Computed example of a mutant assay.
Amino acid sequence: MTTEQLRPAPDSPPQQQSSRPSRYGGDRLLFLAEALRTFHDTGALAPSGPDLVNALVAPATSRPNRPISVLEVGAGTGVVTRRLARVLRPGDRLHVVEANPRFADRLREDPVLAARHPGVGLRLSACRVEDLPEATEGADQDGQGDRGSQAGWHGQDGAGRYDVIVSGLPFTNFEPALVRDILDLYLRLLTPGGELTYFGYLGTTTARTLASGPRRGARHRAVVRLLRRFEAMYGLGERTVWRNLPPARAYLLRSPGPYA
């Protein structure tokens, strides 16, 4: 596992490179190549579209009047990451987790992330979320936690906790036990009243059964049932995004407790 603080480019004013069509075209090609190579972990053939991105980052735009800490899991080529970097304010912290080394390399070189607002801390961990030091309860109690962390990085209510988590993981590609573990981890990492967003593509259950056979179809349905139970317990609402490839539904959930 590698984890590092990404520094703003010293000579680049914020928000000067918000649109780089040729680079984003390269992002789409990279995403497609990695999806074809490792579809189990990527889970899509194209990055999320603008409407889905806006739905996923909504909790970071409706926020308390204080610095917040945001965790993004499964950043891919960074379409959500770039949007978060634009909406976060000085004093906020963004922790990005991406297990694919090619995607992580692309994020390190991203000019929009380098040109973010001064005072927005950005940390990249090239690993799975379950391998983070914060994922182990008590990992930071002896002071031997993630040495890539800055003072003031962690959330307002306890070490290694976040006000917002945005998950891009393809849950229906995973085994139900792993999905349950990740959802439980998200709840542990959120501050009381903190918010979680994730999404799923529409029509995938039938497509998975037809394309992969009854065994994988049954696993897919088990994950969907698990997600629906989780949403029934913690859900605030959902939004269907038709202008996405493929169409998707974004979910908003809140951890138990009052939000500070």
Rank of each mutant, 00 (worst) to 15 (best):
F171L: 04
I182D: 10
L210E: 10
R215Q: 12
Y201D: 05
P176I: 04
G160A: 14
F171S: 04
T206D: 11
G200L: 14
R219E: 07
A218L: 09
L202R: 13
G194F: 03
Y201T: 07
T206L: 14
D181Q: 13
R229G: 06
S212V: 05
T172N: 12
A222I: 03
L196F: 01
D181K: 11
L178V: 14
L202G: 06
R188W: 11
R216I: 05
G213T: 00
R188I: 08
A177K: 14
F171N: 04
S167W: 10
H220C: 00
G158T: 04
Y201M: 12
L178P: 01
S167P: 09
D181V: 04
L178F: 09
L169G: 05
E175R: 15
L169T: 08
L169K: 09
G160W: 11
F174R: 11
L196P: 02
T209W: 15
A211W: 10
Y198I: 05
G193D: 09
A218S: 10
L178T: 15
F199G: 08
R229E: 14
A207S: 12
E175I: 11
E195V: 03
P192W: 09
G217M: 04
R229P: 00
G158W: 08
D181W: 05
P170A: 14
E195F: 01
L183N: 07
L178E: 11
G217V: 00
H220L: 02
P192L: 09
R225W: 02
T191P: 02
A211Q: 14
Q156N: 12
A222S: 13
Y198Q: 12
L196K: 07
T172E: 10
R180G: 01
R219T: 05
Y198D: 06
T209D: 05
R161E: 00
S167D: 13
R208I: 13
P170L: 15
A222F: 02
Y201P: 02
P176D: 05
R225N: 08
P170E: 15
F199K: 13
R221W: 00
T204Y: 13
A159E: 15
F199H: 15
L196R: 07
S212M: 13
I182G: 10
Y186I: 07
Y201I: 07
R215H: 08
R180F: 01
N173D: 08
F174S: 05
S167L: 12
R228S: 08
R161Q: 01
G158C: 05
R161M: 01
L189G: 02
T197V: 04
E195M: 14
A211P: 02
L185Y: 11
L210G: 11
P176W: 08
R228T: 06
P176Q: 11
R208M: 11
G217I: 01
A218C: 03
P176G: 04
L210T: 09
V179A: 03
G155C: 01
V166R: 12
Q156W: 09
G194T: 07
G200S: 15
